[in-house]
Design a protein around this nucleic acid. Structure first.
Lengths: 143, 143
DNA sequence: TCTTGGATTATAATAATTCTCGTTTAAGAA
DNA sequence: TTCTTAAACGAGAATTATTATAATCCAAGA
């Protein structure tokens, strides 16, 4: 069984990335525990092991790992405030790359009964908003 | 038939908000055209009618309108970068208020065939990510 | 070992958003 | 209508998250 260290070196090699010590511990900080990790949290954890590490390094490598598919980004949407006046129940289709948003008026692709069963008790889904992420044609063409 | 002006005064009154000129034109800038509006776009439009208006006023009132349900926010998620190491296909349940994220491991509430039919041609849904927004128990209790 | 291009660091810069506070205004009361 | 007052506005400063820059540093192949 390969060590975590060796596993990462292997992954990095497959992506053509140098397997530096910093990347190693950033990757491990995210994958060691399940759930969702903020940059601050990763930075705090990583600094415990390598106090000289820079926040910019954490940012850069998290983005790099996401680009190469080693990590996933939670909610890969535009970081700016967007509003809409359409209050009719409808949903959104968002391009992960260019962040363009399109409306999906028919919600028949979501089974809200099943969804409600999956949600934890007390979670209010009375006015649900569903957003689906993918790559728009233009961005998937570029690759 | 009430004018747009009167309609807004009525809406504002129902929410207990003062119907100021600035609010009027901000609201109209968003609702006059369908689709998704950035703060910059709203500001630019609104400044054409009332050059003295402040960007802070636009921000403040857009947030206010969203809080009161007069407008919807597109992607009401945490504005900070979050990553996860779990690469297994799974989805997210996000609290609109506190931005907490939970995993939804079973995707059986989404009919991907129907979804693909709804999406525009060429939109790449080969690795779909679905995020569902609502209010977690704690936040819906506070109201 | 040596070389070299990519990686890291500290710091500066940027961009989006929010806060502060003095001024103005909406809207109910007189 | 005028008065009163809490709320709203405007200008610019402040804050926060993130990215760019430029000088070292190091991983990895020759």
């Amino acid at each position: 069984m390969a060590s975590a260290h060796e596993q990462f070196r292997d992954l990095a090699w497959k992506c053509g990335l140098a397997a530096t010590h910093q990347r190693q511990i950033i990757y491990e900080a995210v994958t060691a525990t399940p759930g969702h990790h903020s940059v601050e949290a990763v930075f705090a954890e990583v600094r415990g092991r390598t106090p000289s590490i820079s926040l910019a390094t954490v940012y850069k490598n998290l983005r790099l790992f996401v680009e190469h598919g080693l990590l996933r980004e939670v909610s890969p949407h535009s970081s700016m405030l967007l509003v809409e006046g359409n209050l009719e129940p409808h949903h959104h289709l968002i391009c992960t790359r260019c962040k363009a948003v399109q409306d999906l008026d028919a919600a028949d692709f979501v089974n809200f009964k099943k969804l409600a069963r999956r949600a934890p008790r007390g979670f209010d889904l009375s006015r649900p908003l569903v957003e689906v992420f993918g790559l728009c044609r233009r961005c998937s063409a570029k690759t």
